[in-house]
Design a protein around this nucleic acid. Structure first.
Length: 104
DNA sequence: AAACTGACTTCTC
DNA sequence: GGAGAAGCCAGTT
């Protein structure tokens, strides 16, 4: 089943450039549902198109990889590493790799 | 309509 | 920074 909220979240995730990551809350804020970070995560977990929706570029605010429906966090981490995302142990180095959407 | 769930976030200790 | 608890949300049952 698809909902308007999901489509919005997917669309936003698609605007995340390679080598960068966004937090669930970040997407929630961009979707005008500033406190729906949790709901955003749910959409990703139900995502069925990893090739279309780069849900692997979405991490928790702490930089932790909270989950990935295709291969687990291991695969997620690997994919991010391939794109050049900086890691600090098991967490993304948000200071260097967090996506900064253009504010206008 | 109500309760439950989960890939969240923030606060306190 | 980590463990525990509470708040918040959309979706599912």
């Amino acid at each position: 089943m698809k909902t308007s909220f999901q489509e919005l979240v997917y669309k936003l995730s698609q605007s995340i450039p390679p080598g960068k990551v966004a937090t669930y809350q970040q997407l929630a804020r961009l979707s005008r549902h500033p406190k729906a970070a949790r709901a955003v995560g749910m959409c990703m977990s139900r995502n069925q198109h990893p090739e279309i929706v780069p849900c692997h570029r979405v991490v928790a605010s702490s930089g932790k990889l909270t989950g990935y429906a295709f291969g687990g966090v291991s695969a997620k981490k690997f994919k991010l590493l391939q794109e050049g995302v900086k890691f600090i142990d098991e967490r993304v180095d948000l200071a260097l790799s967090q996506w900064q959407p253009d504010l206008k």
